[in-house]
Amino acid sequence: MDRTKLLAARYRAATDRPYLASALYSLTIVPASDVPTMGVDRHWRCYVSPAFVAATPVPELAGVWIHEVAHLLRDHHGRAARLPASAQGDPARINLAQDCEINDDLLADGLALPAGRVVPGDYGLPRGRLFEEYIAGVPPRPHAHDCGSGAHGVARPWERPGAGTPGVGDVEAAALRRAAAEAIRAHQRARGTVPGGWSRWAATILEPVVDWRRVLAGAVREAVAWAAGAVDYTYRRPSRRTAALRGVVLPSLRRPLPRVAIVVDTSGSMGEDELAAALAEVTGVLREVGVRGNRVSVLACDADVRAVSRATSAADVTLAGGGGTDMRVGVAAALAVPERPQVVIVLTDGLTPWPAEPPAARLIAAVLGDAADPPAWIETVRVPVVRPGG
């Protein structure tokens, strides 16, 4: 491999974009004739095709260096792992969406990239979005360029994580991301010439936004654990101490699984995509903690309860409505059944009246957007909403 040419391209990339220099020089070069062009694994090893280096001019190689390190700086493999399960089965499609996110910024920054690179406009998609927003608009392409597990998270045959190829650990990777973000901020103050995508990325590192999925999952798990904390006696499984007492059967203690009701706001102001994402998060967490089947009911509600269903996943839910909004009706209906739930989760945009006082159940509100605040006594999780053109 023409290592001199490859290193000259990295030097050019680091010189022209000094805020990325530390990250670029943290990549370990691994020659690999079976890699299509260049790719990275999640431990910052950069696999390089000798034939690709020979055929590609230095300016374009410099652009590819920045493209590959961008996958790692933006934690694409970590973000891919947090995608819904339905979106994780096509690594090539994920990679294309990620390339749209990166190349959009690189080309706007005047970088040269090899032929065949993809941008959002290739699929009629808007510029300046994250790859999670692009996936739905990217068609499957089985032979797309593969940037490796450092992008989509799935290990490739040409990756060689064995001895002799040192890598970067998670703690060091986090430090490299923060150092790059701080360098971007310093570069902006000195020259003000950083592409918008990199500027927004730096802001998320230096001023992190709490991941609503983790917050919602934590709230649901904690509420279920709280509701299950009450124990009761049962004779279905006699106490182990029964054997010591002739003619006496002692009950054992049991910790029953709670019942959970999910009240879904289906009024006209609700966005279907965000609503489906929040509902999938809730039902997924409930499955993880063992609450499923007939222990979960979902009520579709606008100004009235339109549909009630038992749910084991978001796909089982029938949503109906589209009129006004009054979540008090949904909460009251959820608690009116003979086997009343111990936990009620409301998915809404917040533009609704709320009960005047706490109900006899744990109440969680997953509020889509920031239009309104529920009462202070309601445990609230904010779910960000991306509006068209926003």
Rank of each mutant, 00 (worst) to 15 (best):
P120E: 07
V119N: 10
S149H: 06
F131P: 07
H145Q: 15
G167V: 01
A155P: 13
A174Q: 12
G169T: 03
A136P: 00
A186Y: 03
E172C: 00
A174E: 12
A179P: 01
S149P: 07
G110V: 04
E132F: 04
G110R: 10
R189M: 09
R129T: 01
D109N: 12
V119W: 11
V118D: 10
P126I: 02
A190W: 02
R178D: 09
R189C: 04
A181E: 06
F131H: 12
F131K: 08
E132A: 15
G128L: 00
A183N: 13
G121C: 05
I135W: 00
G148C: 04
G128N: 01
A115H: 14
G192L: 08
V119I: 12
V168F: 04
R178I: 05
R141E: 12
G164Y: 05
A175W: 04
A112S: 15
G162R: 08
I184C: 10
T165A: 14
V171S: 13
P161N: 12
A115R: 14
A179H: 13
R178L: 07
P195S: 15
H152V: 00
G169R: 05
A112C: 10
I184Y: 11
C147Y: 06
G164K: 07
G110Q: 10
Q188N: 14
L113Q: 13
E172V: 06
S149Y: 03
V154C: 03
R127I: 00
R129Q: 15
L111D: 14
V194W: 07
A173F: 01
R177Q: 13
C147I: 00
L176G: 11
R160Q: 13
P139R: 06
G164V: 02
R178C: 10
A186G: 10
R189P: 02
D122F: 05
H152I: 00
A108I: 00
P157N: 08
E159M: 03
Y134L: 02
P195F: 10
R185A: 13
S149E: 08
H143E: 12
L106G: 12
A108K: 15
A163S: 13
L113R: 14
L130M: 12
